[in-house]
Every structure is written in structure tokens, then in C-alpha cells.
């Protein structure tokens, strides 16, 4: 890699994320930025550097930074998937799982645990409704080192400020020393972390009501994506919900899952029953109501008619 390209990436990452890109970490650029290069229709790292230099296009810069810092996961990353859990799925779980008072969530590629713990904190926030319930949250990651970190629930001052509201820090964390905070036992008890590779047989993991598998598929080629989605379809409840990352989809990759209409990032089994969580509405109804409330064109057409 040319010195000037290395300098460009190093400066960019330092500025935007504080990440220090040592000369010995140059190989990371190649592996982490390949999905970004593909997404933006470029061919190589050189082309990417060239594009950054000439355009300084904000979404591109953001994607580069995100891709290089994925190990530094955020609490409540992207916020929307957690709002959806709290507002859309939790009421449905409470309704449909009432007989057993039990549900299970899988945070696949859990990294240092922020996603799993974020979900556990949402459950804790709704403790009154979940009184007498058992909630299992399982986090898995490739790296045994990172699984161990996740288990400990120890985070730097930087990490506890990324995505985590201060009120949650006060409620659910204790300060261990000047720079370290640890998530409380009450939250840690809700989450189990294990080593696990999405490309291998999952083993006897049981069935999950909700699976978060975000920003993982982007690193795989097409056949592998299909394989992983097939495998996930075998461990998800018939009415379960799969979350993928913002840049990911099942379209053209899976004959098992389909997007859930009106809920970005959420996917359900194609042959799901109509009796479980989020039952499918009658064919035309949701589309019609969505059109009248969200499409300015339809609203305009309607109001024009009213004027006439």
C-alpha cells in the first residue's frame, strides 16, 4: 500500500473514531473495507482512497469508519432495532408467550456484549410486565477472547458513553476504577455468552423467538449468506423474528425468510403461521393505510379531490 493512502486512512480513522491504525494493522484495511468498497461500486483500496480524497463524501467516510471499528460495538447500536424490540416485539411476546412465560433471544456475533446487554436492559426497564417471566438472552461470538470480555461486562469510559443514556449507566453499571465500568449482576444474569461460529453447525442451541444477526452477512459471499440464513431458519420459532443490519437483506439469498412489511430490518419465515407474533394483516389493508398516512402524493391527490 502506498504511503499516502495509508496516511489518508490513518488520519481519517484517527479523526473520526480515535482508532489508531498501526502499520502492522494495514491488513485490516483490506479485510474490513472490502464490503464498503463493494457497496460503493469501487474496485480496490486504491480506488477507495482516491474517492475519499476527491469527494469526501460523508456516507462513504462513515462506512469506512464503521467498518474499521466494528469491534468497538455500541450500546443500542442504530437504536431502531431496540425501539422495535421494545415497542413492537415485547408486547407481542407478552401476548403470545404468556402460557409459558418464557422467551429466548440470540445475539449472534455478539462481540463484546453490548447488543445482548442492551436487550437485557430493555427487559429490566419493563420488569413490572415481565414479573414471573424467564428471559434467556444468548450471545455468541467467534472469538473466545471477546466472549470472555462480554461475560465480564467490563467497559471503558469511552464504551459506556457510546449509545448508552446516562440514566442507564447510573441504574445498571458500577464504577470499578477510574476508567472502567461493569454492568450489574442483575443484568449479567439474564445473558449467557458462548463461543460460536455461524459457519459451523450450531449444535443443540434450542429455538429462539428473536435473533439479532446484524452486520455479519456483509462479510460473507453469496452462497455463505444463503447457508447462514438457512441455518438460522432452523433455530427460529415458527413466528420468530430475525433482525439483520441496515445494509443487509434476505432478498435473492433465502427462500426461507421474507422482510416484514412496515418494519425495516425485521424478517420473518415465509411459511409462518398466522396465529403467532405479528400476524399478517389482510392483504391490502396495511398498504392502503400506510399510503394515506405516509405518501405525500396520495394525500395531495386526496385533498385535490376534496377541493374539486
Amino acid at each position: 500500500m502506498k504511503q499516502e493512502d495509508y496516511d489518508l486512512f490513518a488520519t481519517l480513522l484517527k479523526q473520526r473514531s480515535g482508532l489508531v491504525l498501526g502499520r502492522d494493522k494495514v491488513y485490516l484495511l483490506e479485510s474490513r473495507l472490502t464490503p464498503v468498497i463493494r457497496k460503493h461500486g469501487l474496485k480496490s483500496l486504491e480506488e477507495l482512497a482516491q474517492s475519499i480524497r476527491s469527494k469526501r463524501d460523508e456516507p462513504l467516510l462513515r462506512d469506512v469508519t464503521d467498518a474499521m471499528t466494528t469491534n468497538e460495538s455500541f450500546f443500542f447500536r442504530d437504536s431502531k432495532p431496540f425501539d422495535q424490540f421494545k415497542d413492537v416485539l415485547l408486547p407481542e411476546l407478552l401476548r403470545t408467550r404468556a402460557p409459558k412465560k418464557y422467551f429466548r433471544i440470540w445475539s449472534a456475533a455478539a462481540s463484546s456484549g453490548q447488543e445482548a446487554y442492551s436487550l437485557a436492559m430493555i427487559c429490566a426497564e419493563n420488569a413490572a410486565q415481565l414479573e414471573g417471566w424467564r428471559v434467556d438472552i444468548v450471545g455468541t461470538d467467534l472469538s473466545s477472547e471477546i466472549v470472555e470480555r462480554a461475560r465480564q461486562g467490563l467497559y471503558s469510559q469511552f464504551e459506556v458513553q457510546r449509545g448508552l443514556p446516562i440514566s442507564y449507566l447510573m441504574k445498571y453499571f458500577s464504577q470499578v476504577n477510574n476508567d472502567r465500568w461493569q454492568i450489574n449482576d442483575s443484568i449479567r444474569r439474564m445473558v449467557t455468552f458462548k463461543e460460536g461460529n455461524l459457519l459451523m453447525d450450531f449444535g443443540p442451541v434450542g429455538v429462539f423467538d428473536i435473533i439479532y444477526c446484524r452486520n455479519v452477512l456483509i462479510y460473507f459471499d453469496q452462497p455463505t449468506k444463503t447457508r447462514v440464513l438457512d441455518a438460522l431458519s432452523r433455530v427460529i420459532a415458527p413466528d420468530g423474528v430475525l433482525f439483520l443490519g441496515g445494509a443487509e437483506t434476505v432478498l435473492g439469498l433465502s427462500d426461507k425468510f421474507k422482510p416484514l412489511e412496515g418494519q425495516r430490518g425485521m424478517y420473518v419465515l415465509k411459511d409462518r403461521p398466522n396465529s403467532g407474533m405479528l400476524p399478517a394483516k389482510e392483504k391490502e389493508a396495511p398498504r392502503a393505510s400506510a399510503a394515506t398516512t405516509t405518501s405525500p402524493f396520495v394525500v395531495n391527490a386526496a385533498s385535490q379531490q376534496a377541493v374539486r
Binding site: F74, F158, Q161, P165, I166, S167, L169, Q175
Partner: peptide
């Protein structure tokens, strides 16, 4: 430290950032 954070929030602060900070922290808060 937790004592300062609690004091700030009790007196009407809405959020709390511990220095050093960066763009991500400000943006997320």
C-alpha cells in the same frame, strides 16, 4: 465518578459526558 453524575442529574442536567469525548459520543448523546 457516580457522585458527580448523580448530583448533575438531580439538579436538572439532561445528559452527561465524561471527557475525553469524540464525535460519536456527542452524536449518540
Amino acid at each position: 465518578d457516580m457522585k458527580h453524575i448523580q448530583e448533575a442529574m438531580a439538579n436538572g442536567a439532561d445528559e452527561y459526558i465524561m471527557k475525553p469525548f469524540d464525535m460519536d459520543i456527542i452524536q449518540s448523546k
